[in-house]
């Protein structure tokens, strides 16, 4: 069924364009295999939330105006992987260690919540019992898992590379 283009669609498209332009113009830093996995993590974790809490029988929110899956939802999902990549990219570039880790997670969780508030104001999310306060906690949890996996993946990658250069 064709539906008219709403503000949520424009929000999705504009954010997608900005994200992917930035993604393709950033100088490569993370190994391709690790970057691909980080992007898969960045897509899978939100999908787990969206399709656990946002669908019946729990059904706490709708995405992109309608309860049904629409093409606009695919656009929304496409926003997640580059964000996970930027998160890992900056984590690596800024050499986040020690006490900087919780500070970095907090900054990203606040930014994520603010981004979601903007998306909700454009109709990308429609809460039916959900609240941005819970989103903040979800972002903290998801970002912590992503950071942990990223660090483990990078360590594993460097170990494998080192082993391959041994005589």
């Amino acid at each position: 069924m064709l539906r008219s283009i709403g503000p949520n669609d424009w929000f999705n498209v504009i954010v997608l364009v900005i994200e992917y332009v930035l993604f393709f113009f950033l100088p490569p830093r993370i190994p391709k295999s690790v970057a691909a996995l980080v992007m898969l993590i960045g897509l899978a974790l939100p999908l787990v939330w969206d399709h656990s809490l946002g669908t019946p029988p729990i059904d706490l929110y709708d995405t992109n105006v309608y309860p049904e899956l629409t093409f606009a939802d695919v656009l929304t999902w496409a926003m997640y992987p580059p964000l996970a990549y930027f998160f890992a990219y900056l984590y690596d570039k800024l050499r986040i260690r020690g006490l900087a880790i919780p500070a970095y997670l907090l900054v990203w969780a606040v930014a994520g919540t603010a981004f979601e508030a903007a998306a909700a104001s454009f109709g990308v999310f429609d809460y039916k019992g959900w609240s941005l306060r819970y989103s903040f906690l979800v972002y903290l949890a998801v970002l912590s898992v992503t950071a942990y996996l990223f660090v483990r993946l990078m360590a594993s990658f460097h170990r494998a590379r080192k082993a391959s250069f041994r005589p």
Binding site: A36, L40, L47, D50, T55, L69, D73, L149
Partner: peptide
């Protein structure tokens, strides 16, 4: 990890498609 996450990525939205 790649196989695991891909299973989630395809299966989760499909459930919504089936259910909703």
């Amino acid at each position: 990890l790649a196989a695991w996450l891909t299973a989630i990525i395809i299966n989760s939205p499909a459930y919504s498609f089936f259910a909703v």
